[in-house]
Structure formats: C-alpha cells, structure tokens
Design a protein around this nucleic acid. Structure first.
Length: 569
RNA sequence: CGGGGUGUAGCGCAGCUUGGCUAGCGCGCUUGGUUCGGGACCAAGAGGUCGCGGGUUCAAAUCCCGCCGCCCCGACCA
C-alpha cells in the first residue's frame, strides 16, 4: 500500500472523549471512528487488524474440528421466549418489528438459534459430536457503553457451540476449546490468564474466562503467583489471614452488647472516624436481601464487600428501603442482627468467633458494641460471602493472592442441557432412546481483542503491534520523496518486500521526516525502514523494529533479509 | 436509571461570570514559494445553524426554560 493512496487519518492530539490508552490510540492512529456511543467504524487499518485476528481464530477453530457457519443476526422473538431469555435478557435486547408488526430481536448471542438448528438437523448419536461456530456481529443494548472497543453496543464475536452425547464427550469438547483458546490468544500476541468464572445468566455448570490483565478492565481477578490459582473475583475464595479473623483478647470482652448513640452516622466509614474510632474490621456490615422471595440478613465484616455471586440462593436482590424498615424498624446505616430471631441470618464464615464487634442497633442513629457474634447473633448459616482482597492467602497453597483488573476476551462454558431441553435438541442413542444433547458454548470478543492487544502493547509513542495482527508488517519511509536516489531505493525495497510476501506500506507522502516517524511510531508497524540521504551516504538504509531503540544500518540489497529477521523475533 | 462534567470550524481550546461591532487562537486543510533525519517557514485562502427548540431583550455563544448528544463515577453486565 502506498500511504498517499490510503485512508489513515492520524490525529496529533488526544480526542477529549477518550480516556484509556487503547481508545485514545485506536482513534489517534486512525483505526476506528465513533458513530454513536458504543458504535464504531473500523477504518482500513483497524479492519486489517480485525481480519487478522479473525483469521487466527478461524485457523484454530477449524484445526480443533469446529464447523464454521453464519447464522442470522435477526431473530424471531418467539425463539427467545421459548428459553425464557426474552425476559431475562430483556434489558440488553434490541427489539425491532417487521412491516407486518412481527417481533424480532437483534442477536446478542446465539444459543437459541444454534440449538434450533441442531434440533432440526441432528437426529442420531452417529452425527455427534458437533461443534458449530461463527464470526459475526452481536448487538447488546448495554446500559453504558464505554472504554472505546471494550464495551460497545455492536461488536464482532466468535461464538462456538458444541453438542455431545454425554458428559464425557462434552468435557472433551470443552477441553478442546480451552486448548484452542490458549493458542489463539498466544498467536494474537496477548498474554492471557485463564480463570475460574461464575456462570451467571448463561447457566451451566462450569466456566473459565480468558483475561487480559489491564487497568482498563471491567472485571477483577484474583491470582496466586505461587501455584497459578486464578479466579474471577465473583468466584474467588481465599484463606483469610489477618485482622478479619482475629478475636479480641478475653480481657477486653464485655458481658453484654451495649447500645450507644451515633448521631449522624450513616456508613461504616462514618463510624471509623472520631469520636467513635471503630475500625472497619471491627464492624459488622448488615445487608438486607430478598433470597428466593424471603427477607434475609447477610453479614460481612465492615471492611469486606459482599459478593452477590456467593449468596446461597437461586435468586437474590437487595431489599427495598420500605422492606428494610418493615423488617428491622430502622434504615440502612443503623442495621444489625443482634437479637433478631424472625429473620434468617447468613453470616460470612470469617465472622465466626469474632468478638468485640460493633453493629447497628436497628434504631436510627444507634449502634451496639461488644458484640460476640456467636453468642449474640442467631446465625442460620455460615458461608463464604465476601469478595477476596489483595494480600489474602491462596485457597490452594501457601501463596498470597493478588487482585487485578482485567479485560475478558474469551469465555468457555459447559451448558449442560438447558437449551437442548428447552428447544427440543434431542438425538436417538444406540438403543433408540431420545436424549437431549449436552452443550457447551465458547465465545471470543474479536473486536474487544483489538482493544485488549493495544492495552497490553503500547508505549508513550503509540501502539506496538505484535507482528501477527499488525495492520502492515513493515513501513518504508523515504524521508524526502523529491530526492531521486532516496525514492529509487525505497521503491526497490518496497517492491522486494511485496514480492517476498511481506505486508508493507510505503510512506510516499510529501511530508517532512518528523511527521512520518511519529505516524509510524503511533500506528506501531513492527518494522520500520528509513531511507534518507544521510544513511544512503553511509551506504545503507536503517532498519528498526518498533520495540527497539537503535536502528541497524543495512546495505539496500540486504534490507529485505534483515527485515525478515527482525519480523521473525 | 441516579450523580458529575461537557457541547463554539476536521482536532484541541478561549470567549460565557458582568449580553453589545465582521466569534477568536493553535494544529490540520487549500494554493504558491522556500525547505527536507523526529510533528518546518513565508504569503494568500477556504471552512461556523456557537448541540437543538423556545423565551427574555433594542441586542443572546453569553441570561432563563425544555430537550438532545457525548464522556466519567455508580447501578447494570454471557
């Protein structure tokens, strides 16, 4: 490609609406442009990156035996009603109607569609297993698109669905995808960690997520550097070490909880300040939830966060203020479980044995202190309810956990028979019995990967593309296009690169050298070849990898060979 | 959906408090010339419904009311 013929609108200044590096750099380097909140155009360079990731995904999915199809993005609403997800996913569904007022949705995912396909086309155990995938646009009416390509309303996803005769087969399918995903992300130049995940609204028994650690991530993962344990914070457990499990010495204990006035106190933090000075780890946080329709109190340490995914109930929601007042007679800020008998209490396991605690008195602006949890509170269940924090012990070894933000780029699920039963995807086994297929589903956020790669691969000057996904592998920079010998050498190297099958772009713009250097660094081509009068006078051209600081002076005839060496590393 | 911010040329911004002439600046863009190793210089240009609608006023980018877009925090999130 000749730069002068291309559409590469680089920006000198940072667009003010972009905050995270990938968003800023993808805009500045001219890879994407916004159309609306969470809706982007991929410009030529961005589209090339996207296509390269897609190609890697295709190669590895095909290698793993998956079959590529293309399902519609437009789905009759009835199919979504059959699984109940027209209701459960209602808020993120884009709804449209056709001219005769028939209801459709724009597909946010394709379990319903692929299962309908399998129900129609697969009859016998002899046709199984099958893994069907596609790379396609998904639509989700996200309440709050943000962070450039990380969370958007329309995006490119690879989604695969496996169908097996039994659990053992489903496990093999799951494992094959898991292995393929590792290879895919590695080939994309992404360093990912795979973590145990919460299955969430997808249903199913187990799942793993592939995460890219980055401050721009919306998820949080807990990792152990010692044994490799890694889990989404929604799922993570820990071996608690430290103050949350330490009881007060016997001599400081009191015989009965004592009520005291706490005017103006509304939060845990308020109570940590003078004149009260009750540290958060000595407080009990009392949360009122409705679990499977029943009001329940959930207790954690004041310094802990409740992890809703760990609540032992099929459905859980925070109680409304009026429900709270009806149940306890006070408002949040003064709630407590001491003496409560009519309402079940579920306490975090780390509270067991805690003494000398302070909690709300169920009377606005009053608290009680000297609480001995096991003595003073009727606890129905002790369970792990808390969000893991950095510095806690690994549940699998002696190591210490660290919590980081991360971007989810892939997710593999075991689905079981949730969709096959709902949509009648059955097969006949060897004995002629009809059985539901065992399913798995496997997603990769392809467009999100573009952002994740940039988050992980950039410096102060711009993007540093891994070769495998770079929009072009080599940029050839003739510094002065009006200087005959410069252009001759540049054109020759450019032509040789193309002949050698190397993707190259020739910066034949009439601009000054500084503009070309800065744009090349901003976009982040893996290798840059500089052709200028100075280096030609020294008998060569300069070849420099984007990640290097020093360029090599190379005779023009050897340039292509040196470029290929640098591309190989 | 709650809270905060913001909207003036392609990009980044000033002007708004205290209303007042043809609405400015830098970059970019066009033309000509000189340049040519890390975002050149000179000269001449083009480009604006000041987010939209209404109101107040002799007069509105500026004050008032309503709406919308975008960004951030939260809620939410396969």
């Amino acid at each position: 490609m000749r730069w002068s013929q291309a559409l590469i609108p680089t920006l000198r200044e940072v667009p003010k609406d972009a905050e995270i590096p990938s968003h800023q750099l993808l805009l500045r380097a001219g890879l994407i442009r916004p159309l609306a909140a969470g809706v982007y155009t991929f410009l030529p360079l961005g589209f090339r990156v996207l296509k390269k990731i897609e190609r890697i995904v295709r190669e590895e999915m095909d290698r793993a035996g998956a079959l590529e199809v293309l399902m519609p993005a437009l789905h009759p609403r009835e199919i979504w009603e059959q699984t109940g997800r027209a209701t459960t996913l209602d808020e993120i569904l884009f709804k449209v109607k056709d001219r005769s007022d028939r209801a459709f949705v724009l597909g946010p995912t394709h379990e319903e569609i692929v299962t309908t396909l399998a129900a129609a086309e697969i009859r016998s155990y002899k046709q199984l297993p099958k893994n069907i995938y596609q790379i396609q646009t998904k639509f989700r009416d996200e309440p709050r698109p943000r962070f450039g390509l990380i969370r958007v309303k329309e995006f490119i996803m690879k989604d695969a669905y496996s169908f097996d005769v039994d659990e053992a087969g489903a496990d093999r399918s799951y494992q094959a995808m898991y292995e393929a995903y590792k290879i895919i992300f590695a080939r994309c130049g992404l360093r990912t960690i795979d973590v145990e995940a919460h299955s969430g609204a997808m249903g199913g028994s187990s799942s793993h997520e592939f995460m890219v650690v980055s401050p721009a991530g919306e998820d949080r993962v807990a990792c152990c550097a010692t044994c490799g344990y890694a889990a989404n914070l929604e799922k993570a457990t820990s071996r608690v070490i430290g103050p949350t499990s330490r009881p007060v010495p016997p001599e400081e204990r009191v015989a009965h909880p004592a009520k005291f006035a706490t005017p103006g106190v509304r939060t845990i933090e308020d109570l940590t300040k003078p004149p009260f000075n009750v540290p958060a780890e000595r407080q009990i946080k009392t949360l009122v939830y409705v679990l499977d329709g029943k009001i329940t109190l959930l207790l954690v340490h004041g310094c802990d966060e409740l992890n809703e995914a760990k609540i032992p109930a099929a459905t859980a929601r925070p109680a409304h203020p009026d429900e709270i007042r009806a149940a306890l007679g006070a408002l949040p800020g003064s709630l407590g479980a001491v003496g409560v008998r009519q309402i079940p209490v579920i306490a975090d396991a780390t509270l067991r044995g805690a003494t000398g605690m302070t909690t709300g008195a169920n009377e606005n602006e009053f608290h009680v202190r000297g609480v001995d949890v096991e003595r003073d509170i009727t606890v129905a269940q002790w369970v792990d309810l808390r969000m893991v924090q950095t510095g806690e012990g690994c549940p699998k070894c002696d190591g210490i956990l660290r919590v980081d933000s991360a971007i989810e780029v892939g997710h593999v699920f075991k689905l079981g028979t949730k969709y096959s039963v709902a949509l009648g995807a059955n097969y006949l086994d060897e004995k002629g019995a009809s059985r539901p297929m065992i399913m798995g589903c496997y997603g990769i956020g392809v467009s999100r990967c573009v952002a994740a790669i940039v988050e992980q691969c950039h410096d102060e000057k711009g993007i540093v593309w891994p070769r495998s996904v770079a929009p072009y592998e080599v940029a050839v920079l003739p510094l002065n296009i009006n200087h005959g010998p410069t252009m001759e050498v540049a054109e020759e190297i450019y032509r040789e690169l193309l002949d050698a099958g190397v993707e190259a772009i020739l910066d034949d713009r009439p601009d000054r050298p500084g503009v070309k250097f800065n744009d090349a660094d901003l976009i982040g081509f893996p290798v840059r070849v500089t052709v200028g009068e100075k280096s030609l006078a020294k008998g060569g051209v300069e070849v420099k990898a984007r990640c290097e600081t020093e360029a090599a002076l190379v005779p023009p005839v050897q340039a292509v060979a040196v470029i290929r060496e640098k591309l190989a590393v």
